[in-house]
Design a protein around this nucleic acid. Sequence first.
DNA 1: ACCAGAAAGTGGACACTGTCCACAAGTGGC
DNA 2: GCCACTTGTGGACAGTGTCCACTTTCTGGT
Lengths: 213, 213
Amino acid sequence: MKKQVSLQKRKTFRHGDLRNALVTAGLEMARAGGPNAVILREATRQAGVSPNAAYRHFAGQTELLDAVRSACLSRVAAAIEDEMKKYKAGRNPQAFARNSLRAVGMGYLGFAMREPGMFRTAFSVPPPVHSPDPANTASMGLNPFQLLSLALDRMQESGLLSKKDRKNAEYLAWSTVHGLAMLALEGPLHKMPREMVLALGERLVVMVERGLS
Amino acid sequence: MKKQVSLQKRKTFRHGDLRNALVTAGLEMARAGGPNAVILREATRQAGVSPNAAYRHFAGQTELLDAVRSACLSRVAAAIEDEMKKYKAGRNPQAFARNSLRAVGMGYLGFAMREPGMFRTAFSVPPPVHSPDPANTASMGLNPFQLLSLALDRMQESGLLSKKDRKNAEYLAWSTVHGLAMLALEGPLHKMPREMVLALGERLVVMVERGLS
DNA sequence: ACCAGAAAGTGGACACTGTCCACAAGTGGC
DNA sequence: GCCACTTGTGGACAGTGTCCACTTTCTGGT
């Protein structure tokens, strides 16, 4: 239907862009079924190539998953950016700061609700921590964590947060929205309607803002 | 080494307690490697029984995992209870309420740090929501969620929380600690030292307490 | 223009998983 | 003592990740 190009058997022996094709296929599987659903052989099948061909581009299934996770993280970052763009820096820096924080939280949560599979994949197995890996970023060149830091910086600069309270505040804020997202996606709250989750998210952001200082 | 009893080939054709043996084996696998590591065939092997024997007690691997998850949830509840027992209701109900909330948060997080595999298993795939399943509880007969509710009730009763703010507050509080735990276990913070995670946890609980009202 | 060597993909095999089927071995009620 | 029922066995199958030896194609140096 969509990328028929990869299904019709190619004429050339070389695929030309296999690595990308595999990641794309893997991304689709992650979208549909989360990290456990990204399956190496299936990816090669969709790329119209033998299973072992994948090993020319990835050391194994784990590395393929790593690449897919990276792609998922980029999507998360993009969603946050989109949300942040709704607010412009105006004459009230405190309002701007608050809106930034809200945008990060709600962008994060919104993506989790919209693309559960990708979200779960993005935060599944141990990635190499805070690597400033440019592959995880969107157009602003910041990963989700850095976008959050930015929002918190604005809080501090506008006087909403003391220097002391600012320290490590990203972890506190992040935990909050991430936790709600996970509980709603694969935890005990998975039957809660999305609107309610998002409503809780609103309260959560307020709680963070109030509780941080 | 430990439960040799299940390894030496039994004399009777019947195992006698196979279901339990399978869950126990599964629990050990979950402890060591999280939900993905609980493998049906391996459980039967450890129980000294043929793979198919498991199907007399579970419809399939998923059901075995369900049972293991239930057991993990019990452990979480037990850990929270242990933490709560440290504080007794005294002449200051507000302090008691605060301590209860702290106990829930820190008990939860502490267990996550001590038993990452079990914790991840406990909150992995969709369980049947808020079923008051007695299998998930510890000695007080309350599951982790209910223990949290109890702590929040104490907050309200002691006047620390208004009726309006009390509503759905468990979700907000829960999200917070759960999020930190997940980020620390299988998220980008997995290299953060446990002491730091727990220190963040302390701040987090304070933030919740301050932010909820 | 050649041609060696690297890069990319193929085919076959292996061990492992979950699961299905038909069958055997004990057990309990009448 | 028999017979139905539960529990466990054995053999099979498809699907997975991965290793090995092999072939096909591309590329760069002479």
